[in-house]
Design a protein around this nucleic acid. Structure first.
Lengths: 122, 122
DNA sequence: TTCCCATTTGGCTTAATCGCCAAATTATCA
DNA sequence: TGATAATTTGGCGATTAAGCCAAATGGGAA
């Protein structure tokens, strides 16, 4: 059986679009903050609102975007709606990007130090 | 040494914003397609343009967004500019989201089948 | 130098996103 | 049932993103 170049197929394009939707959903500070909180367990909307500090309606819309992308699920219990993470691997990816950003910051300050040394020293 | 709740600190907010920028950069079908291609090795702009099919200027702007987020790096060699992935863990996260989406699709068709059985059977 | 090729930048139009308010919805409790 | 609390939805103005064209930039070759 011959493997077809994946980027040429319509199915692959659909997959890429669904994956891009996941990234897009995570690509907002408030949403990412909520998702990070959800890596520690389920939370109701009111707890997440307290965390991000925006209007409740704004928070609710953010959550519906995350749900639409399949990143979280919601469950109504009593008067509250509890959200929880369905895409567990966000957690490890967040760890990796955190390390990546730290490294970039370190490299940057190293470069700046080198530049300063050049200026004054020689 | 006491651990402070991370979501309260300014440093944590900056980290979240930088991480959200990474997600936002990846949250576009053309950019994600290019990044996926780059998981297989470096590519020049012209190759990536052929892949996504948009105007070269559009592709170039997409690439500068990815570069700004720290996802890729560029290197000028001769007449061409070659882009390569700097955030290697995108690869495993893409695999995970791919499985996640497949699973969701399977669950959906299962639910539909169950619904159809209910309708006709009982 | 001059031409050409690959890439980037500026500018502009259209579309999508954000965040708030107000109103609708749904559940609990008295 | 009526009041209250939690959440979602509709809608609006303001900001930002996307994509194309045209023009600028920079390197290599003639």
């Amino acid at each position: 059986m011959q493997m077809i170049a994946p980027q040429r197929t319509a199915a692959h394009r659909r997959l890429i679009e669904a994956q891009a939707e996941i990234f897009k959903a995570l690509g907002h500070p408030s949403r990412l903050l909520m998702v990070e909180e959800l890596t520690r367990g389920e939370r109701c909307v009111c707890e997440l609102q307290a965390l991000v500090g925006s209007d409740v309606s704004t928070v609710s819309k953010h959550l519906s975007i995350l749900k639409g992308a399949g990143v979280v699920r919601d469950e109504k219990r009593g008067a509250n709606v509890y959200y929880s993470l369905t895409l567990g691997c966000v957690r490890s990816f967040l760890e990796c990007t955190g390390r990546h950003i730290d490294q970039a910051a370190q490299d940057l300050s190293q470069d700046l130090a080198g530049l300063a040394a050049l200026r004054s020293g020689k």
